[in-house]
Amino acid sequence: MKRKCLEGDCCPVARALDVVGDWWTLLIIRDAFAGVTRFGDFQKHLGVAKNILAARLKEMVEQGLLQLSEVGARSEYQLTDKGRALMPVLVTLAQWGEAHTEPEQLGTRLLDARALKPLRKVEIMSEDGRVLGQGDIVTQAPTPAQ
């Protein structure tokens, strides 16, 4: 089934999913944060078919999540600012996965690099610093253009 393009959607969640909605995209971003830069290393870590990986990396470069650079005779993929901005998304998704899925074995954990302690749970905060829960957030529909 061909994916519907959500690029022009008024919903920011839909537009974001248009860029990162494929599971391979977030797994590639996860590995890039862990220092993976080369095609073969992504392929080895993810176990994804080479044609699928090549297509995803190409799309991620086109979307501005990664940049491709030549280092000697090899190509390397580096996170861009846009790609690095996904860190809070990955942390939140990892924390959700730890709380709501059953692992067969203890997996990787995200730790504070300096203290080597688990990260504090991600919280949603108001502009004035209050911690917000689900009942504290409303959705505002866009107003029609005049």
Rank of each mutant, 00 (worst) to 15 (best):
23 W>M: 05
23 W>E: 09
25 T>V: 15
25 T>W: 01
26 L>K: 08
26 L>H: 06
27 L>I: 01
28 I>R: 03
28 I>K: 04
30 R>K: 12
30 R>V: 08
31 D>M: 10
33 F>S: 13
35 G>C: 05
36 V>K: 02
36 V>R: 02
36 V>S: 04
37 T>F: 00
38 R>D: 01
43 Q>T: 03
43 Q>M: 07
43 Q>P: 02
44 K>Y: 02
45 H>V: 09
45 H>P: 01
45 H>A: 14
46 L>F: 02
46 L>P: 02
47 G>S: 12
48 V>R: 07
49 A>L: 09
51 N>W: 00
52 I>R: 05
55 A>P: 03
55 A>N: 10
56 R>T: 15
56 R>Q: 15
57 L>V: 07
58 K>V: 04
58 K>H: 06
58 K>G: 10
59 E>Y: 03
60 M>Y: 04
60 M>V: 12
60 M>L: 10
61 V>P: 07
62 E>Y: 04
62 E>R: 14
62 E>D: 15
62 E>N: 15
63 Q>H: 12
63 Q>S: 14
64 G>N: 06
66 L>N: 08
68 L>C: 10
68 L>V: 10
71 V>L: 05
72 G>V: 07
72 G>Y: 00
73 A>P: 09
75 S>F: 05
76 E>R: 13
78 Q>C: 09
78 Q>E: 08
79 L>I: 13
80 T>D: 05
80 T>K: 09
82 K>Y: 00
85 A>I: 00
85 A>D: 04
85 A>Y: 00
88 P>Q: 07
89 V>Q: 06
89 V>W: 06
90 L>W: 00
91 V>W: 00
91 V>D: 01
92 T>Q: 05
93 L>V: 12
99 A>K: 13
101 T>P: 07
103 P>T: 11
105 Q>T: 12
107 G>A: 09
107 G>K: 05
109 R>H: 11
109 R>P: 06
109 R>T: 14
110 L>D: 06
113 A>W: 00
114 R>K: 14
116 L>E: 14
116 L>N: 15
